[in-house]
Each structure stands twice: as C-alpha cells, then as structure tokens.
C-alpha cells in the first residue's frame, strides 16, 4: 500500500492523473461534435446512442489510454530500474522471497493505477450523462472495470519485460510495442470481420465485450473477468520464474 501511495504521488502518478482527466474531458467535448457526423459503417453496428457512445469512449479512446500508456508507466521500470540503480540486492536482503517481490511490485502498480483511474472514470460518468442522458450505469461501470483488468494485463506484460530487460528504455519501448500490436485486431474487428477471429485471442476483445446492449448478465461477466485474469497469469508466471533464476 505504501508503494502504491508513493507511486500515485510521484511524477508518474501526476502524469497518469493529467492524462486521464484530459482524455475524459476530451471524450465528452468531442463526442458532442462527432455525434452529428457519420463515422462510416462502424457506428451503424450499434443500434442505440448509448452503445455508440460506449464504443467511442471505451473501444476507440480509453482502451488506448489505459493499455498503451497509463498502465505500463507504473511498472515498466519496476525491476529493470532497481537493477540499474543497484537497489535490487538491498530489497532482496529483506525477509521476502523473490516471488513476493515481483507480486508486490505488480500489485502496487495495479492499486496505484486504480487510485487514479477508478475515481476519475466514476466522475466521468456524471459528465457523460449530460451528453447521453440514457447512459445506464450497469454496462458503463462493467466495461470500466474490465478495462481496469486490461490494465493489469498490460502490467503483467510490463513486469515480465522489466525482469528480462536490463534497460528502462528498452523495457518501456518493448511494452509499448507489444501493447500497440496486441490492440490492433480488436480495433479493426468492426471494419474487417476477419480480424474478429484474431481479436478473440487478445484480452482487449473481452474488455469491450459488453459495449453492445443486451450482452450483460452476471454469469457472463464473471466468466469474462476470469478469462481476462487468465490472460495475465502466463506473463506473471514467466516474470516470477525468470526472476527466481536470475543471479544478481
């Protein structure tokens, strides 16, 4: 918890806060303008204004924010930075296992991101209801939380790369590159049906599953959450396995 608080009150927490606020304000402002123009065939897939708005907020804007940039900044130098600054030996001299060290770093970053993201996305709902009065809280908050889990996926990838990499910049570039690549199939699935098959293999597909109306029920939601957590586990396992083998 102390780690998480320290991250929130550091420059990365400030950047995450500013960026999230910017995105939420910009989404509200520009949706108003976009609502009267045609965005091609994509908008016609969504039959209600609410689902169109949800697509715009979560699928085209917030997904990029959370997965590409905001989430990885909390974790990309978690291990590589400590290694570079020769603090790793000091941390591991404490009575905690290497597995615990990796998990604590990842979970601290996840909590820190949540402290920034969750309140702002909740406040964003209040703003968005003035633009889309019929915006129901269920699908909105359901998808918001799934995006939070998507950020955990980004962090799992980030921590694995941080363990493997010896350089912070390489760690950030590799995480950013992989996330940019991984989000492509889901971003293109509406304009290219062939991409839907590829999108199913990425957690981004599941994070935005409840955008279309009528999809949301408790059992499906729990199932989707479990699927997203399953996506994270291999990267966490690899990070822990690799870190346990490393000779400092």
């Amino acid at each position: 918890m102390l780690n998480a608080t320290r991250m929130v009150f550091s420059i990365r927490g400030l950047l995450a806060l500013m960026f999230t606020i910017y995105m939420i304000v910009a989404i509200g402002w520009f949706y108003d303008a976009i609502a009267t123009t045609a965005l091609g065939e994509i908008l016609n897939i969504f039959t209600t204004q609410e689902s169109q708005f949800q697509w715009f907020v979560f699928d085209s804007a917030l997904v990029k924010l959370t997965t590409l940039f905001v989430a990885p900044i909390f974790v990309f130098d978690a291990i590589s930075g400590d290694r570079h600054q020769e603090r790793l030996g000091l941390y591991l001299s404490r009575p905690i296992s290497r597995t615990q060290h990796v998990l604590v770093r990842t979970l601290s970053a996840f909590v820190a991101f949540g402290i920034v993201y969750l309140p702002l996305i909740s406040l964003g709902y209040l703003q968005f209801t003035t633009i889309v009065p019929g915006l129901t809280p269920g699908p909105y908050f359901a998808t918001s939380f799934l995006l939070y889990l998507l950020a955990f996926f980004s962090m799992s990838v980030g921590i694995f790369i941080s363990v493997v990499s010896k350089n912070n910049m390489v760690s950030f570039l590799a995480t950013f590159g992989i996330m940019s690549f991984a989000m492509l199939p889901n971003a293109m699935k509406y304009s290219m049906p062939a991409m839907e098959t590829a999108a199913i293999a990425t957690p981004h597909y599941y994070a935005t599953y409840f955008i279309k109306p009528g999809n949301l029920d408790a059992l499906s939601y729990i199932g989707i959450m479990l699927v997203m957590i399953l996506f994270c586990l291999p990267f966490l396992y690899l990070a822990i396995w690799r870190f346990n083998k490393e000779d400092l």
Partner: peptide, 20 residues
C-alpha cells in the same frame, strides 16, 4: 524515466488533440 514520460505525454496529448 520522468523526462521520457513527460515528453511522451505532451506529444501524445497534442496528437490526440488534432485526431479528435
């Protein structure tokens, strides 16, 4: 870390501004 993150934030925000 802070230099890269700050520079990237500014350029990304400017990029999103014209995109929207």
């Amino acid at each position: 870390t802070p230099s890269v993150l700050t520079a990237f934030s500014i350029t990304l925000a400017a990029s999103f501004l014209y995109t929207f």
